[in-house]
Simulated scan of single mutants.
Amino acid sequence: MENMKQARRDVGTFSGLCLLYGMVMLLVSGFWGMVVTLYQALQHPGRAEEIAYETYEFLQTDGTHYLISVGFGVLIFYLYRNGKLFKSDLRTNKKMTAAWFFRFLPFLFFAQFAFFGVNFIFESILNLFGWTMAPAVEQASGQSESWTMFLYASILGPISEELIFRGAGLRTFETNGKMFAIVMSSMLFGVFHGNLSQFFFAAGVGLLFAYVTIEYSIYWAMLLHIINNLVISDGISRLSMVMPGEIVESVYLGLLGIGSILSILLLIRYRFAIKQYVKDHRPPKGIYQQVFRSPLLWIFILLLVYLSLGTLAPLG
């Protein structure tokens, strides 16, 4: 029973630190907005409308505040782990082979396919009530339009998120079993995105990244995360700048189809091994009920759900 209470405290503390990280991001964003406004004011003295317009346009695509924020975020969780974040939290287990790495890759495309499927279902339901989640989808899958946003979304974002969720989070929760660590770190990773359309996708790939981390190494999870953001998401979008949109769409749909089929075949082939893995590493009975009694966890979930609702828009 004491272990379950400790698990509740661990999840609550981690959720609280995620909230703190989110507040830091808001503060940095606000500060950076003031810096940009001041710069525009110096460039366009006395022209308030032009200052506001230029500031808005710049901040729409700029990722500088994210680049600053990730440093604070990693520092928060480094202090939380008492310096273990860059030591034992990054430990390697089994050696990754090329064969297994290329077995994991198709699941990135399968997750993208599932992302569109889930979004279609939610969009259809929301449309019945006169709402759309198109802005949320665009926010989740939009192309980086500045080098700062590209650097954050494709490189530093994936690395920092792996350090926080598969480093600090996964290793903290691991004391209650591998499956508990994989499930909880992935769920919190999905919630942290604060985007309704992104929750299931982030939680889904989070399961893959968490398994790779706990069985192989966080460095391989970082690489898979970077491939997902840099190649599959941003890379495919950038292809449309140099190739006809119809060709890019056909290539993308083909990759999604092939990746999804391969993923399903792999799941069928290893279904007994997966079932045995889950059975061997299942957490103590009742631990999830105990964990979901954490007030901080619910504050974290409800606040991010509330923010994600802000990405919805009236239909038409």
Rank of each mutant, 00 (worst) to 15 (best):
I51H: 07
K5S: 14
I264P: 09
P314T: 09
T55I: 04
V11P: 03
I261T: 09
F180I: 08
G167T: 10
Q60K: 11
L38T: 14
I125P: 03
K275N: 08
I182E: 04
A181N: 14
L312C: 01
H281A: 05
G259E: 04
P106L: 04
Y53Q: 14
S146A: 08
T148Y: 06
V137I: 13
R103A: 10
L38D: 13
R103V: 10
E145A: 13
L170W: 13
L20D: 05
E49F: 07
V36M: 06
G30K: 09
L297G: 02
L42Y: 03
Q143W: 13
F101D: 05
G235C: 12
P244Q: 00
A134N: 13
W100P: 11
P284N: 01
Y39L: 14
Y78C: 06
Y270R: 13
T64I: 03
L230I: 12
W32S: 03
M25R: 12
F120E: 08
H281G: 02
E145S: 12
F173D: 06
I299Q: 00
R271P: 07
L42V: 08
A48V: 15
K178T: 15
M96V: 01
T172M: 14
K94T: 11
T61G: 05
G117F: 01
G194M: 08
T64L: 02
S260F: 08
F116P: 03
S15T: 09
Q143H: 14
K95I: 11
G254V: 03
N119L: 00
F129W: 14
S185E: 12
L297A: 02
G30A: 05
S15P: 11
E246S: 12
N195M: 07
I236P: 07
P45V: 01
N119S: 05
K84L: 09
V11C: 05
T172R: 15
Q43R: 10
F201R: 02
L38P: 08
R81W: 03
P314I: 09
I155R: 01
T132W: 02
N119V: 04
G206N: 05
Q276A: 10
F116C: 06
I232H: 03
I264N: 10
S240C: 11
H193T: 00
F272M: 13
N93H: 15
I232W: 05
F102G: 06
H225G: 09
F86V: 03
F107R: 02
W100T: 15
S240K: 07
T37L: 12
I121S: 04
P284T: 03
Y219R: 09
F173N: 08
H193Q: 02
G16H: 10
F77V: 00
L196V: 00
H281N: 09
F189W: 02
I299M: 05
S294N: 04
Y53W: 15
T311Y: 15
F77H: 01
V191A: 07
L267R: 10
Q290G: 10
G190E: 01
L253R: 14
L170K: 13
K275A: 06
K279A: 11
L38I: 13
T64F: 04
G316C: 13
S186P: 00
P295K: 05
R269T: 13
F104E: 00
V70N: 01
T213C: 04
Q40A: 07
G235M: 11
A48R: 14
S29E: 08
R9P: 10
A41Q: 03
F58S: 08
R171H: 15
L315E: 10
L296R: 06
G16T: 10
Y211A: 06
F200E: 06
G190S: 00
K279E: 04
I155D: 03
G310N: 12
F200C: 00
